[in-house]
Design a protein around this nucleic acid. Structure first.
Lengths: 188, 188
DNA sequence: ATTGGCATGTAACCAGTTACATGATTCC
DNA sequence: GGAATCATGTAACTGGTTACATGCCAAT
C-alpha cells in the first residue's frame, strides 16, 4: 500500500504514463522510492480499478498508444489520509555494505572497485539533483523559496537526496583512502 | 541470495542463534541490512541444508533450547566469492519522504509530528552507534585503528551508519524549521 | 542490418511481512 | 496477576524481481 502512495505523490506533478513513472519521472519520487516497470503497471491497473487514478488513452501514430494516468478526487483524499498515518521506519538493504563489512575475508581489490563505482554513480546522481534544484529555485535563494513557494515538499525531499549522495561520495573516499593506505603498508 | 550473505558476514563475528540475529546482533549488520525473525529462521534453515553454516544445539534449563549457528568453510568461501560480484544499487523506500513530498495536499501537522519522531529515532540510533565506535576504537584514534586493526570492515560500515543518522537529524531539523516558519506566516 | 527508444504487458518466481502459537521465566 | 524476555517456529499473504514478448520507429 505504500508504492500506491508514492505513485499518487508523483501524480501531483501532473498526469503520467506507466512508462514515464518507470523512467523515474524526471527524478521526483525516484529519489526515495524505487520500483520496477512491472510493479508500476500492475499497481496502476489496481489503482484504476479502485478509482484512485483515471486513465486516458492517448492514440499515437508511429509509436505505441499510451495511457496517461491522473489523480482522481478519491486519489487525492487517499494521499491526504496517508500523511496522517505513521510512516514505517526506513529499511536499508545495501549489498555493498555487506561486502565492505566482510572485506578482509574476501577480495579487497574487488571491493575497492565496487566502492569506486558506487562513488561514480553517486556523483552523477548528485549533479542531476543539483540541476533539478536549480530549476526549482529558479533564481531564488533557498530561504526565499521556502518562504514563498506554494509547494515545498518536493524541495525538501530533493534536499534529502542531495545530502545523501554527498555523504555517499565522502564515505566512498574515506573507504578508498583506508584501503589504499593498508595496501601500501602490505607492500612496503 | 543477499540476505544469505548478510548473515554470513554477521557470523564472522562468531556463532549466533536466530534470536541473536533477529535482535540485530548488537548492531553490526542491522545497520545496513534489515530482516525480520521469520526471514532469518527460514534462511538459516536453508543455509544449514546447503552446508554454509553448522548448527549446534545448546540445551538450556528454564528457557528454550537454542541452536547456535557458525560459519563452515563453504560459508566462508561463499562470502569471499560474494565480494567479487557487483553489488546491486541501493534501493531506498522511505514512507516519510512520500509524506513530505505530498505534504501540502495532506495534513501538515501530522507530517511535522512524524518528522520529529524520525529525528528522535535517528538520535537514539546515533548514540548507539557512537558507543559501538568507542568500543571498537578502544582508545585508539581513527587513523591508528585504520592503520593497525586486523579488520576494518565493521568500522567502515559503522562510519556509514553514523554519518547517515547525522544527516537524518540535520535534515529533520531543516524540515521542521521550514514547516514552522510557514505556519507562523499563515497565522500572522 | 541492427541497435536503441517508445510503450505496454504476462507469467513465474523469490523475498519480505503479518499474524499467530508455544511455554517457561523473570521482573514489577 | 500481567507484561516482558527468551527462543523457536508455521501459515498465509503481499510485494518485488526476472525473464520474456510484442511491434513499430529513428538513427547509425
Amino acid at each position: 500500500m505504500a508504492l500506491r502512495n508514492a505513485i499518487l505523490a508523483t501524480l501531483l506533478e501532473g498526469e503520467a504514463s506507466g512508462y514515464d513513472l518507470a523512467k523515474g519521472f524526471d527524478g521526483s519520487v525516484a529519489n526515495f522510492w524505487a520500483a520496477t516497470p512491472q510493479q508500476l503497471y500492475r499497481e496502476l491497473e489496481r489503482m484504476a480499478a479502485d478509482g484512485l487514478v483515471a486513465a486516458r488513452l492517448v492514440e499515437q501514430t508511429g509509436r505505441p498508444n499510451k495511457r496517461m494516468f491522473s489523480l482522481t478526487d478519491a486519489g487525492r483524499d487517499e494521499l491526504g489520509a496517508y500523511t496522517t498515518h505513521p510512516p514505517r521506519p526506513i529499511v536499508i538493504r545495501d549489498e555493498l555494505l555487506v561486502a565492505v563489512q566482510s572485506m578482509e575475508s574476501g577480495d579487497v581489490a574487488s571491493v575497492q572497485r565496487w566502492v569506486a563505482a558506487r562513488q561514480e554513480s553517486a556523483r552523477s546522481r548528485l549533479t542531476r539533483y543539483l540541476r533539478l534544484r536549480d530549476r526549482l529555485l529558479d533564481g531564488r535563494s533557498e530561504a526565499e523559496f521556502v518562504a514563498g513557494a506554494e509547494r515545498i515538499g518536493p524541495y525538501l525531499t530533493l534536499a534529502r537526496g542531495i545530502s545523501f549522495e554527498e555523504e555517499n561520495i565522502r564515505w566512498c573516499s574515506f573507504v578508498l583512502g583506508a584501503i589504499a593506505s593498508r595496501l601500501d603498508r602490505a607492500v612496503t
